[in-house]
Amino acid sequence: MATLHTVNKSPFEKNSLASCLSHLQSGYAVLLFEDGVYGALRGTTIATRVEDAVKSGRVYVLGEDFKARGLDEGKMIEGINVVDYAGFVDLATECDRVQSWL
C-alpha cells in the first residue's frame, strides 16, 4: 500500500516538501530530486521535519541531482539514502503508486 512521494522543488521556494511531509502515510518513501535535493541538507529551516520523516520512514535523494548542484554528502541529513536513476526506477516499482509533489 506504500506510496513513493517525489519532490522536485527547493523547500525554500515552494511548500511542496512541507506539503508532502504533511501527507505521509505509513510505509512511505520520499525521493528528493531536481531542486528538491536542497531539502536533504542539514541545519536548514525544514531539516527537523525531514529528520522526523527519516525516523518513521524512508527518505532518498537522487545522487545525480545532488552532485550536479555541488552539494556535499557530508552535509546531508543522516539516514537519507542516495540513489541513482536506476534506484529511482526501483523505488517506483516497489511502491504501489507515485505522487509527484509538483
Binding site: T3, H23, Q25, R97, V98, L102
Partner: peptide
C-alpha cells in the same frame, strides 16, 4: 482533513499531478 485526504490519496491507483 489533511489526514483524511492523505488516506484518500493512499487509496488511489493513479495520481495525476499538474
Amino acid at each position: 482533513s489533511r489526514e483524511e485526504l492523505a488516506g484518500l490519496m493512499e487509496d488511489q491507483d493513479v495520481l495525476l499531478n499538474f
